[in-house]
Amino acid sequence: MRWAAGVTVVALLLALSPVARWLVATMPRLLLLAVPLWFVLGLAATAGGRRVWERGNPHGLTGLAWTLGAFGFWMIPRSVDAVASSALVAGLMAASLFAAGALLAASWRRVPFVIRGALGIQGAAMTIALGFIYLGYTALLCGTFNLAQQRQTGVWLLRLAPVIVLIVVGAGARALHLAARQRSRERLAAPTA
């Protein structure tokens, strides 16, 4: 509880500091630093407490719906523009992504393995697809920034993509390994006829 409160206070101080404006001043910073930062702070706030949200969160799907909704909404180019040009909207983004991280951390263990795997693969695929779109699109997608920043964002997304793929594959392999070990333990423990 103390840990969660501490992380929340840090996030709040960060959101109110000049750093928050600096984070959204360019397109690469906004999409590659600010968005993950608020989400990771939210994850950290809940993950430290090892709490699991059960009531009103069947199979962790309510937390998942919030996370997907928040990421989907803030990835809309018009939303990115609104964040860059309004401190209020930037604050809303920070709060909703912080909540997304916190809710996902409290829901993740309840989400079925197949859904977790599909989301991981989808996340990696989206990173690659977005990277190519930002790199190759010849018109401005976000009206607040310029073409050089758009391309730079694309380049960095493509550089990050292999890391995300490795994380997804590693997490999947670990989960499968743990499940197999659990099954073999259960088999050994079962009484023989």
Binding site: A65, W66, G69, F73, P77, C142
Partner: peptide, 28 residues
Amino acid sequence: ALPVVLVAGAWLALAAWWTHGFTAFTFF
């Protein structure tokens, strides 16, 4: 199922309003 539907529905409704019915995704 209600909380899942409400949360997903709220985000979808917000996105639909913001993008003029999923037709306008950019500032332009």
